[in-house]
Design a protein around this nucleic acid. Sequence first.
DNA 1: TTATATATGATTGACTTTGATTGAATTGGG
DNA 2: CCCAATTCAATCAAAGTCAATCATATATAA
Lengths: 246, 246
Amino acid sequence: MNYLNENGSGSVNDLVDITNSSTATVRRDLTHLESKGFLKRFHGGATVDQMEQEEDYSEKSVKNLSKKLKIAQKAAELIEDGDTIFIDAGTTTYEMMPFIKASNITVVTNSITLIDQLVRNGHNTHVLGGKVKPSTKAVVGHDVIEKLKTLSFDKCFVGVNAIDIHHGYTTPDEDEAYIKRTAVEQARRAFVLADSSKFERSAFVKFAGVEEAVIITENENHPFLEKIDDRTTIIGGGVSDLYSDI
Amino acid sequence: MNYLNENGSGSVNDLVDITNSSTATVRRDLTHLESKGFLKRFHGGATVDQMEQEEDYSEKSVKNLSKKLKIAQKAAELIEDGDTIFIDAGTTTYEMMPFIKASNITVVTNSITLIDQLVRNGHNTHVLGGKVKPSTKAVVGHDVIEKLKTLSFDKCFVGVNAIDIHHGYTTPDEDEAYIKRTAVEQARRAFVLADSSKFERSAFVKFAGVEEAVIITENENHPFLEKIDDRTTIIGGGVSDLYSDI
DNA sequence: TTATATATGATTGACTTTGATTGAATTGGG
DNA sequence: CCCAATTCAATCAAAGTCAATCATATATAA
């Protein structure tokens, strides 16, 4: 990581020389570090994301243990080659970026922040038009909804503020709730990214009922999930296993 | 890509020499990069479709930067309190940002790059929706045009690649030309930002005739301006004086 | 100490990238 | 309008790179 941070990238052979270890070990470590989001592999070597290049390794280690990244990674793994997806504006959805492995995907978003990352990673990116909300740099407004209604997605990924059996998925901002609602409606399969602190709470505006989307969370054993688990709405630890049943 | 971004374009043979690889590999890579939207191929080489031709790297000194800044500053000073304006994607228009002093303005743009600055400076910002072009992070496509047609602006500011009496304002990219054309049509007053190196040249697609917009440039004594000066189309040194006559 | 888990490095066959060659397509000068 | 030169995409074999497997070595825990 020191070498990569200094040079931006390096070949497998470079790293073999530097670390006095075998190609097998280097490859294994690269695979592992990539899964944690520290670097991005390419055929023959690996790079670090230039934007985060400065960031301290240990600092990110701590960050990486966070629930948010786990959830983001699980979400990103659900994206398949050729998918057309909607990604909502939000901090958790933002963390999905480095984990998206699928190719040939089309991504629609209302988040200005996400676009940089999407474009840099070579994804076909579309932005919804409208007023830019200064606080979150999310695009909101009537036009967003109107445009969304003309689109359909294989999957959609939205953040959420609170989940409750009776109130469903809720969020405090009305504009953003409408967008989430419409996105969920237009997607064949909707995913809500939520860490367990969001469970059994509710916010101002409901955008969908609990059964209308799959919850992606970090702790599949949370008591709240038992109440709503009808075998199809939770993705916990083993992502692919559970998802294959859906 | 580094080479193309610095030089605007390059032949396959140039790229073979630079990368120490075969023509087959260069061609393959060009095909791939074009499919991702990072460049545009032509017979014998490729270009990055920049909004405005980047000048020679050696020449791109303080002097030329200040040209751009002078133009940007003049343009920014034309914006008045309460205006609703369109700002085109482009490097010169980007430089306007720090000079915008007016308050209570509404800015519409198709440039993802501009949004950050606009929002940070507290302007009411709207983005046009559509496909994001990777090379320039400009939003393009049919939706952009359709939406533009429903709006009207007090003023619009667009970049240009070349200006010529017969061909008017021209730019190499067709998609972006349509956007500029529509923006100019929808504005009560249109301004084209162009340093004098753009004069008496022409690019592929015309988006307006010389008389349809006011040229903002750094050198009001350039011979080309005499040919087209009908007392209303040039803003040179004393910005406010000339503009007050319009 | 033993047993249990984890990390390493060599080997393998599969996959990817590369560059030379070919014949087709494009270009510009006569 | 044709011809020669150049550029092109397609093909193929060689080189390079990959993940998976296995046996060995090292660390950790009881």
